[in-house]
Design a protein around this nucleic acid. Structure first.
Lengths: 350, 350
DNA sequence: CTGAAAGCGCTTACAG
DNA sequence: CTGAAAGCGCTTACAG
């Protein structure tokens, strides 16, 4: 790698001090500084030498890296890659670049990513926190580190967060299924204690109750994240192959669960929606291409990402101007229930 | 944000020089340096103060940022988000972190991303280059910047690259369709001059020729990237609604094209594969869930990403040890044709 | 209008 | 065994 040209090289070439070069290149000649003619020569030299400022040096000096860290469960999951794209776009509008990492829902990995990103001096973090990382978030709050949680959140930790109303979204989905004639509704969720998932489950259970439907042992089915494939195979088999009192509809709590569940449904000769209704959280191509396009709860990933970045920008700006401690913001983004064929009117058994 | 603790704070607390602290924290006490007892005290102080080294300062000093830049067309495209994930994992094994950016197939945006990443002192770049960015790659080569192209490449530029044999993959796909009775095969591709796309088109045309099939004006259909939706609607309409001599099969050159194409096919009452055969490049959930699961050419994204990172690691290592200029590596990763229902035996018209 | 100097947090030859 | 000092590339108050 050939040696990069620095401000010093320009100074030498023009025969002037590095200070003058720096002022000119930062457009700070005002302040009664550097004549027009000299400024022009400096700029020309910079162009001629193809000078690119070393932002690392500038960061060390200024204490700002103009970098945001993004930690999600898995960047290859379409929900998160859509968020990543929107974070990238919004951050770049504010001259920030994004460093990312995938936690794999693992607390240790999450801690290690946070440490790495902080050592790299990111100015702020956007985190979709994994289970059991509550204390990691608390520690960040304690040092007053600019931070916003997305998707998931910890009710007991006062911090910025952007998410949807998961309880309400589930509740509404069940209402919809009920209105279309389904009476034996099952939810398939992850067996995690993360609050957003708990909210989805509780919204589901509350809706069952409000409609006078009982929650039996087939109502709330849970899969682990680590053994998704085998868990989902078992769950779907025991539900779909049940002789009596089998579920007549499913609410999937995430797109990853829906994908696995739909594959099991496809294997069997079940007519959707005639015999089985389906609703899922999250947008995904799988839902579009399932033979009976799947009704889904659309989370506006772009809005979530945008809002998260903007909260950080605003607070960092304020933090620089005032000494008063900043009050955390909790933002709820609206969801939309996109109704399609999979949850159409149930055909009653003859 | 509370002030971060530095090596100086530790030195003050223990009553020792920053040099000693630095040596200990870098496990360089050997070299006849710092007694065991002192080293222990320094380490304890570091832990007590919750010291995290400032990697930006270290980078400025060492000239290495331990950061890799990744530029793709769009991080929210599953092909690229899978690559991003694999790059992340492989890079992290070598203690590198990843900065990413999406070029949107736009040469100006690509240049701006390259500039940003270089100013941020990334040690190397992994780029899926957009059209008309050949000179950007040349400029990087000229300053001997560690670089590897993935997915796409420029035949006229000698540089590292990792990709598949696109010509061969297309050729094989056509062979497969031909063997299953299809004689009026269309390819749907992007209207770009990028070589990987040209290779796919040429493999297709060569196979037609070798099987004695003529390439008519319905054979090679091209969509723009910018107006994908409307272009694909038009392309598919004119092909599918043709009264005579309509295509009996499609080879889609990317998953994004396939998704749009399959939606148009779904709208019509066409039986796949009886009336229409389909093969696509790239893995995707859409292909799995199409009512007739789609045969696809699987590019091993993990292998591509891993290989790209490893080429960079190897060359940076060598670059540090020798003065001899490094020879570029071109690596071809094998593809697999995953045969499924959509390209099954064609039913002859009665 | 302009230069010399200090400093951001670190590493590492150089003296003792 | 240990400290003082230079330097990575930049910015910015301080003197002139």
């Amino acid at each position: 790698l050939t040696k990069r040209v620095s401000i010093k090289d320009i100074a030498n070439k023009v025969g002037v001090s590095v200070a003058s070069v720096s002022y000119v290149l930062n457009n700070k000649e005002k302040a009664g500084r550097v004549g027009k003619e000299l400024a022009a020569r400096i700029r020309k030299a910079a162009t001629d030498l193809n000078y690119q400022p070393n932002l690392i040096a500038r960061s060390l000096q200024s204490g700002r890296s103009w970098t945001i860290g993004l930690i999600v469960a898995d960047i290859s999951n379409p929900f998160f890659s859509n968020i990543a794209r929107a974070v990238e776009d919004e951050a770049s509008m504010h001259n920030y670049t994004v460093l990312f990492g995938s936690s794999d829902e693992n607390a240790e990995k999450s801690q290690s990513l946070i440490n790495t990103l902080i050592k790299r001096q990111v100015d702020a973090l956007i985190i979709a926190p994994a289970e059991k990382t509550e204390n990691q978030v608390r520690a960040l709050r304690k040092i007053n580190f600019p931070l916003v949680l997305i998707d998931r959140y910890f009710p007991a930790v006062e911090t910025n967060s952007v998410r949807v109303d998961n309880f309400e979204a589930s509740y509404r989905a069940v209402n919809h299924l009920f209105a279309n004639g389904y009476r034996n509704i099952s939810m398939v969720a992850y067996n995690t204690n993360l609050q957003h998932m708990t909210d989805r489950k509780e919204g589901f259970l509350k809706a069952l109750k409000d409609h006078g439907m009982k929650a039996g042992k087939m109502s709330l089915l849970e899969s682990s994240y680590e053994h998704l494939d085998t868990d989902m195979e078992n769950i779907m088999r025991s539900a779909l192959d049940k002789k009596t009192n089998a579920p007549d509809s499913f609410l999937f709590a995430t797109n990853s669960l829906a994908v696995k569940g739909l594959k099991e449904i496809s294997k069997r000769n079940i007519r959707v929606p005639d015999e089985l209704g389906i609703v899922s959280f999250d947008e995904s191509e799988a839902l579009d291409f399932f033979y009976s396009p799947v009704t889904f709860i659309n989370q506006n990933t772009t809005a979530i990402a945008k809002e998260a970045v903007n909260i950080l920008m605003r607070q960092m700006e304020n933090g620089r101007n005032t000494k008063t401690k900043i009050k955390p913001e909790q933002k709820i983004i609206d969801t939309t229930l996109v109704v399609r064929k999979s949850s159409g009117q149930k055909k009653m058994a003859p």
